[in-house]
């Protein structure tokens, strides 16, 4: 029996409207084009109305489960800064964290019941060596559309993966209507350079 436990797990966490699922879709196609086996899980329905949108993406030579277990995530990408805190117990000890500097307030903060935490990054750095903050929303604006923040984050993710950037770019080209391709390619590059 060949031990094929070379599977890596990524958790993408965001709030509704940030393009979290779109980003994870693109990521899956890139992995397929790169010849990897890939599985992803996502949430729909009532579970989606909570505002939190998460997606597990798992890839390797052969993936069985679409779900990573607690303590099994190698890379956490938080599309909203505070979302990173919700999934700490999913991370491996050596996990990498990428966060978008953007802040979106949940109801409890909206109501004024509790303040938005101002020490997220230092808190993460206590336990994790690789924590990278990117102002993806700002970089997306500079690329021409604030909505491309998800693709900026894909650019940052692509640096951590051994997949040629040409594959990423080809898939991004096919994933958007023609008038948005240029903006998204620029966003991707800004994420790579960040």
């Amino acid at each position: 029996m060949v031990n094929n436990y070379d599977v890596k797990s990524i958790l993408l966490a965001g709030v509704g409207g940030q393009g979290t699922l779109r980003a994870s879709d693109i990521m899956c196609i890139v992995m397929m084009e790169a010849g990897l086996d890939v599985k992803k899980s996502e949430v729909h329905g009532m579970a989606q109305r909570g505002g939190c949108v998460t997606s597990h993406v798992r890839y390797g030579s052969k993936v069985y489960s679409p779900l990573a277990k607690l303590g099994g995530i190698d890379l956490l990408v938080a599309f909203e800064k505070m979302e990173a805190l919700r999934y700490m117990n999913y991370l491996t000890k050596d996990a990498t964290i990428i966060l978008n500097a953007d802040e979106i307030y949940p109801p409890s903060v909206n109501f004024g019941d509790i303040p938005y935490p101002d020490d997220i990054i230092p808190l993460l750095r206590i336990n994790y060596k690789q924590v990278k903050e990117i102002d993806a929303t700002d970089l997306a604006k500079k690329s021409g559309n604030v909505k491309a923040a998800n693709v900026v984050l894909l650019g940052a993710i692509s640096n951590l993966m051994n997949i040629p950037s040409s594959i990423w770019e080809e898939v991004i080209k096919k994933s958007f209507p023609e008038k948005l391709v240029k903006i998204n390619l620029a966003a991707f590059q800004k994420g790579r350079d960040a």
Binding site: M46, G50, C52, S65, A68, L70, M88
Partner: peptide
């Protein structure tokens, strides 16, 4: 996966894992 793991560790002669702290994840009200 974590529930399956804890059951398999009991069923099979598998090593007992390091105790993992089960943190409560606070959900957001839909």
């Amino acid at each position: 996966p974590e529930i399956i793991e804890s059951i398999l560790r009991k069923f099979l002669p598998a090593p007992v894992p390091e105790k993992q702290e089960a943190k409560e994840i606070k959900g957001v009200r839909p």
